[in-house]
Amino acid sequence: MRRLWIGLTVVLFGLLLIVPVVRIIMGAFNEGWRGFSDGLSRPETLHALFVTSMIVVIVTVVNTVFGVMMSLYLVRATWLGKRIKQLLNSIVDLPFAVSPVIGGLMIVLLLGPETALGALFNSAGVDIVYAIPGMIIATLFVTFPLIVREVMPVLQEIGNAQEEAASTLGASAWTTFWRVTWPSIQWSVVYGVVLTVARSLGEFGAVLVVSGNILFKTQTATTLVYQDVENFNLTAANSIALVLAAGSVTLLLFMEWAKSRREVH
């Protein structure tokens, strides 16, 4: 009986994880190294990878700064009422509960070219939807809870006694944050950053809805894979998928390391 369960687990693990990865590797190299490098060196691939990395960098920076600030306010701010804190706390999780496609759709409905806000931005010369800003907003929306959810429990656990001690010793809020709070939360922030990078690297639904998937303009790596599959350009699709998968595996390994660091400190 026990063997049966172990066997089933292994089979499921293999079917869900190993087989697809092997399949992607085989697909990427079914025309040899040549097909793989051709698939990657196409101008549209390079552009898509550029767009993806740009989004990843901007989203990660913005979410790190605001995620940490949000966590600090939700845990420490005494000027926020208890009710408001609870409300904000549940709103933070909204992106987890809402499908990314719906998230993207909300942005289109709010900031699309036909809406008042969208028209306003358009007249100022900034396109939000079907352009990079919209894609950044969509990815920000999807990844916002990740850092907050990593950092908040740590802040709650360490309590504010150390920070109060620093203030009685004469340290300003800024000094207290960098010298007392940050060392305690830094590995949680790193962990949250890794999750954010991984999530924004692989985000598809929200970005597809918002970007319109315009070649050489708003196409990201994931939406390019989607388009290549649609066009039966499977070798190229597998090649890009392999690059994304390799990126994710690297991040996972880094995350394991960050996790072990976090437990030490």
Partner: peptide, 28 residues
């Protein structure tokens, strides 16, 4: 609190756990 010229010893000490004894004493 920064400007009151006080020293405060907390119930659970609230030592800076990532600093050494020296670091803790030198902080202020």
């Amino acid at each position: 609190p920064q400007e009151r010229g006080i020293g405060f010893v907390f119930q659970n000490y609230a030592l800076f756990k990532h600093m050494t004894v020296e670091g803790n004493i030198a902080f202020g």
